[in-house]
Simulated assay, not measured.
Amino acid sequence: MGTVNENELYSIGDVARRTGLSVSAVRYYSDAGIVTPTEQTPAGYRHYDVQAIARLEFVRTLRELDAGLDDIRRVLAGETTLHDLAAAHLAVVEEQTRRFHARRAVLRSILRQDTPDGQVVLMHRLVSMSDEDRERLLDEFWAEVSEGLDVNPAMIDRLSQTRAVLPDDPTPEQLEAWIELADLVRDEDFRAAVRSHLREEYSTEAGRIMSSSSMLDSIDEGTPIMAEAMEARRAGIPVDSSRARDIADRYSAWLSGVCGKPDCPEFRQQSAKQLRIALELHGTRNAEADPHWESPFTGPHDRYLDLVATINGHPTSDELVGMMADQVPYAWLADALRASASSSEPGTAA
């Protein structure tokens, strides 16, 4: 604004130069009652003091942020706060940005391939959906496929939590995956297949045991132990160290509780053997090496999970199989169990 005298009045031309507004804009805000002149001569000349100039600069800033005249009036009159005005306008800008990114994603997808007219309409409709609308679509899917099944609701809740969250700026691949996912969850045959899979997997006696709340809780209790084993493996902790022994003790105590078997050297040796088998299945065998090998990710909802993974930017099931050996410390934990079993006193974990 430059140096000003607090007691001096400035002509409309000076005000325009100091605020960066045009003379007509200063006059417009005066006529609109936004910032009136401090003084107006009988001849109609308008003069402004320092406070008026500061208010005009503030008005200019708000206008550049797309604030309307009514909003500006309320702020200047103290009827609303600048914080509230900024929050309201930020929400508008973020929604406009989301829509812009959505349109850009649709255009990118159209350029990637010869997209039929109907597909373009579907793309635009899906990408324009709110997060709540997308959540509702998946809620309806899981509600229908699980209705009336003799399956622990906690298991259904766990399965249904695998949700797709379309980014604000999706890639063409993510957008195309969402289109396919929306088609999939609406498909009656797919819904029937998932419903049948849930019944076959979790309505049997063995399935009810594996999907019971106590079993699910037990699995959750074992997760931090596996995470600690992963950290120890990456840190190069020796399998016969005291830290490895502590992890092996707690893992074996947890596993014996899940299996209902006593924690003893023989149990630890057998558990180590099972981990080695898991390592072979998940880490070293694949469909090319063994045509009889089956992915551990089976079921009619495989494609659902892969599409969700693509949308969320996570590895798909095929990629996950290749990563499994590195993500789960099978070998390290098996060796730690063997080392603990070889001790004269295997000990127990708290």
Results as ranks from 00 to 15, higher is better:
Leu69Met: 13
Leu166Pro: 04
Gly222Ser: 09
Val308Glu: 01
Ile110Asn: 03
Val93Glu: 11
Leu281Trp: 13
Met129Pro: 03
Ser212Ala: 12
Ala350Gly: 10
Leu333Glu: 08
Glu288Pro: 12
Trp142Ala: 00
Ser343Asp: 14
Gln51Asn: 09
Arg98Thr: 05
Ile110Thr: 08
Pro37His: 00
Ala253Lys: 11
Ala229Cys: 05
Asp290His: 08
His197Pro: 12
Asp183Cys: 03
Gln96Gly: 02
Gly20Ser: 04
Phe297Trp: 15
Ala278Gly: 07
Glu319Ile: 05
Leu90Asn: 09
Gln274Cys: 10
Ser30Val: 06
Asp66Ala: 13
Val328Ile: 11
Met323Tyr: 07
Glu147Asp: 10
Arg285Ile: 10
Glu180Gln: 07
Trp178Cys: 05
Ala331Asp: 12
Ala87Gln: 13
Leu126Ile: 14
Ala287Trp: 13
Leu76Cys: 12
Asp220Arg: 13
Met226Val: 15
Leu305Val: 09
Ala235Asp: 15
Leu122Thr: 14
Ser342Leu: 11
Ser130Lys: 00
Asp14Gly: 01
Thr3Met: 12
Thr204His: 01
Glu231Ser: 11
Arg245Lys: 01
Leu85Arg: 08
Arg108Asp: 09
Glu345Val: 03
Val23Cys: 00
Arg268Pro: 07
Arg108Gln: 06
Val23Gly: 02
Gly20Val: 10
His301Glu: 14
Phe141Lys: 03
Asp189Tyr: 04
Ala52Thr: 09
Ala192Arg: 12
Pro300Arg: 07
Glu294Ser: 14
Asn286Cys: 15
Ser146Gly: 02
Asp131Val: 13
Arg27His: 01
Arg136Cys: 04
Pro170Val: 03
Ala278Trp: 09
Ser160Tyr: 01
Ser128Ile: 02
Glu188Trp: 04
Val239Lys: 03
Pro315Leu: 09
Cys259Gln: 15
Arg108Pro: 04
Glu95Asn: 06
Arg18Phe: 01
Ala54Val: 13
Trp293Lys: 02
Pro167Ile: 04
Thr162Cys: 02
Phe100Arg: 06
Gln327Trp: 10
Arg136Tyr: 00
Ile247Gln: 00
Arg103Tyr: 01
Leu9Trp: 02
Arg199Asp: 14
Thr19Glu: 06
Ala253Glu: 14
Arg276Asn: 13
Ser146Ala: 01
Arg46Gln: 02
Val15Cys: 00
Glu147Trp: 05
Gln270Met: 11
Arg338Gln: 08
Leu69Ala: 09
Ala154Asn: 11
Glu140Gln: 04
Ala232Leu: 15
Leu21Cys: 05
Ser218Arg: 15
Ala272Pro: 03
His314Asn: 08
Glu135Ile: 03
Asn152Met: 07
Ser242Gly: 01
